[in-house]
């Protein structure tokens, strides 16, 4: 298993963040796991990384329903960053709204990053599968 440098979790629900952290750290090896409570904080941090030539996290776990800036708004802003590497973005949601499915397909088609759509809850097997460098 290839070692992963950095993982970022963007979710406003503390329990989900706790669970993801626990699952990831027990399934894969990585340098660091960062978490942000909404899209706005996350995009500000990542933009800052990019501007200062810091390493962009290789894998991002992204919630959709968040205050201030939701998952889709984050994605839109993130895709505007001219990042050369292929980042893996795992959308994690409990939504079964077909509109969210459509949004995902839309973003997937217009980006060179790997974007996946995952329903909560996520088990250990899924975590192992989606926590690989694309």
């Amino acid at each position: 298993m290839k070692k992963i440098s950095d993982i970022t979790i963007i979710d406003d629900d503390a329990i989900t963040v706790f669970g993801l952290r626990k699952l990831i750290s027990s399934s894969v090896e990585c340098n660091s796991i960062e978490s942000y409570a909404n899209g706005k904080i996350a995009i500000d941090a990542l933009t800052d990384f990019f501007n200062n030539d810091h390493q962009i996290p290789q894998i991002i776990f992204l919630d959709i329903n968040m205050p201030i800036m939701d998952g889709w708004e984050f994605l839109e802003a993130f895709l505007e960053l001219p990042i050369k590497e292929r980042i893996r973005i795992n959308i994690v949601t409990s939504s079964i709204d077909p509109r969210d499915q459509k949004q995902w397909e839309f973003f997937k088609s217009k980006s060179h990053h790997l974007i996946t759509f995952n329903q909560k809850p996520i088990d250990r097997n899924t975590i192992t599968e989606i926590t690989q460098v694309s």
Binding site: I15, G19, N65, S94, S95, I96
Partner: peptide, 19 residues
């Protein structure tokens, strides 16, 4: 959808935590 989302997200948390 909101109801479904909210209930599912809580139940997902329950199932994860119980696991």
């Amino acid at each position: 959808h909101i109801v479904s989302h909210n209930l599912r997200s809580h139940s997902a948390n329950f199932s994860m935590l119980l696991n």
